[in-house]
Design a protein around this nucleic acid. Structure first.
Lengths: 233, 233
DNA sequence: CTTTAAAAAAATGAATGCAAAATGTTCGGC
DNA sequence: GCCGAACATTTTGCATTCATTTTTTTAAAG
């Protein structure tokens, strides 16, 4: 077995390896490619990742690869054991709990800031997606619901107009991306309805520009999401 | 001029360069040393930083240095221009505003979480430092006041019992460390008194384990702190 | 047959080398 | 004297190489 690390990527297709490297410096493109590669689950959890294999996978030498690994380690996506290489960081239930709470705190902040300066157009867009999500809810279309749900939260963060917040949020979102979708609402119809009601409250508070209130609702909404995710895990 | 980059560090004393590199891998120690080096303001803002100079400064080759630079760039402390080296990232007033708000959001979260699970011992410790701070306030000892103030906020974050939160908070704190102390309360006696009252409210809400309320107070407290910092700038 | 110790192989951490890009300098033209 | 182009120097980006540590293989002893 020459490629024990690669699960789903077709090695015979070089496009998938070289396409996500646009221009700029090799390092930057590689960083994005490697991050996606890891987030998409191409590396098994906790398994040691030899640098050589990744070098061959991305057709680069070890120097830029190691630079990228250091950055990803700083981001918390992988961990670097001294003299023992890198491994994808496994998220314990405790880690997930913590990350969800921090995401909740950041969304609470986003809601508060959004109330201060959201434009009518931005609010209208959120409202539109909200109603679209509601239609998915009525049709019990979980996939569509999820997409809208994600988009709403993303729009709220964007409406906060704070690049530092958006960057921090994106960093955490990347770390829990793999477990995030495990909040299987289909298994828990009550929770789904509850989530929908929470979203109604979110929209309502945002409409009234009630910052503190929206902040509370968003945090608790994430907290409930976390509980649902952990219950189904 | 052989060392145009170094402002205040005495080149003849090698201890300051090599002491902060404990054991472990060279990279990790270097990362800490470099971060401190930058945060302490040894590199002028916006000035281009040749790798060679830093290599000589820390007595290492370019490879680990470049790895460290990539990490620091990911942290937002410096920025890497393609083929043009690194420069210390200048924080615009807008950047500072954003970072303060995110810190406020994280402290708000910390307060909320602390209310959920702070121990009596932890609360007692915060209360103790609070009273110590109050004594500094009465004596108009700004230095002592600041130290206690920092410690209280740090204790609240610690009491949240969330490592991910603490790490995120620490990352942001490092980025604004240089401007944080510019909130010169001595110039604004009213603001100082107001801050002290806010701290009373913080302690009170924490005592009552009033999460949402404490969350609000902490965010607004940081917001006011930011305004004071920007007014004095 | 299991366990352990030594040696071989491989992987990591760091230094050096090399090509490309950027910066600085000099020389020529106006 | 000022501006612009060609050249030299410096610096960056990446590959390669070297040394050390770790892992695996191998073999021998119990």
């Amino acid at each position: 077995m020459s490629e024990p690390l690669l699960n789903s990527v077709d090695e015979r297709d070089p496009a998938s390896a070289e396409a996500p490297r646009p221009a700029g410096s090799l390092h930057e493109g590689l960083l994005v490619a490697l991050r996606d590669f890891i987030v998409e689950g191409n590396l098994a959890d906790g398994v040691r990742v030899p640098e050589r294999a990744l070098c061959e996978r991305f057709n680069i030498s070890r120097t830029p690869l190691r630079e990228a690994l250091k950055v990803l380690a700083a981001e918390g996506l992988i961990e670097l054991l001294p003299n023992r290489g890198a491994r994808v960081r496994e998220l314990s239930p405790e880690d997930v709990r913590e990350l969800f709470d921090v995401m909740g705190g950041l969304e609470a902040l986003a809601g508060r800031l959004a109330c201060e300066q959201i434009s009518e157009a931005e609010f209208a867009e959120i409202e539109r997606v909200h109603h679209e999500m509601y239609r998915f809810y009525l049709r019990r279309d979980m996939h569509g619901y999820f997409r809208c749900n994600q988009e709403i939260h993303q729009l709220i963060v964007a409406a906060a107009g704070n690049a530092a917040l958006a960057a921090t949020y994106a960093g955490l979102a990347g770390r829990i991306r793999r477990v995030r979708y495990s909040a299987n609402l289909a298994k828990d119809r009550d929770r789904w309805g509850e989530a929908m009601r929470e979203h109604e409250a979110i929209l309502d508070a945002l409409r009234r520009r009630a910052g503190s209130e929206l902040s509370d609702i968003l945090f608790l909404h994430l907290r409930n999401k976390r509980k649902a995710a952990q219950a189904s895990a």
